[in-house]
Amino acid sequence: MKEINISKLITSILVLAIVIVGVFGLLKIDFSSENYKKLPADIHSQLLKKEYLVNVEELNINDSITAYIFVDLRSKFDFEKEHFNNAINIFAPTILEKEHLSLFKKIEKDGKTIILYSTSPQKTISTWYVLTKLGIENLKILNANITFENNSFMVTTVENEALPISIADFIKKSSEVKVEPKEIIIPKLNPKKVITVKKEKIEIEEGGC
């Protein structure tokens, strides 16, 4: 009888331990967050195609809303100063909020292209990366720098990954430049005339009393 009770006790402890482990495991799963659907290798091959950038000149403004939707990733403050017509403001650090993700998915479902923009393509690429990895397709980055100067919204197309000058040529030219030595002019002074003054001998009067 006693042995049965001990075995029952051990079984209960084991079951309890297993339940605790199970609950702990369940707690570790973050059911609220989205999970990545693409592997880094998939993104890498997508990046190599370089189809993720779009120039302003390629966009037909009349197609706005019907074919594509601008998503402004800047802060609300910058967005309110000026933005593209019909653009939606989603501040970059908040893109993973449920309402924003469902909005992205809705736009994608409607078959429209999402054009992300911020102050520069460099600032936008991180958002593109996270959203693409989450499986959202039809994402493009506006290849332009956005500034607000003198009360006007400036959109300048940029040439990414281009050097303004060949560094090798710059170094070569620098070594070819010959700098003429500086001239230091020192005036030659005429020697001063030295007039020697003959010292008169003081003659001591002779005689006296």
Binding site: V179, P181, K182, E183, I184, I185, I186, P187, K188
Partner: peptide, 10 residues
């Protein structure tokens, strides 16, 4: 320049 040229003028 590597070395300055010193000129004397009278």
């Amino acid at each position: 320049p590597e070395k300055a040229v010193i000129k004397t003028v009278e």
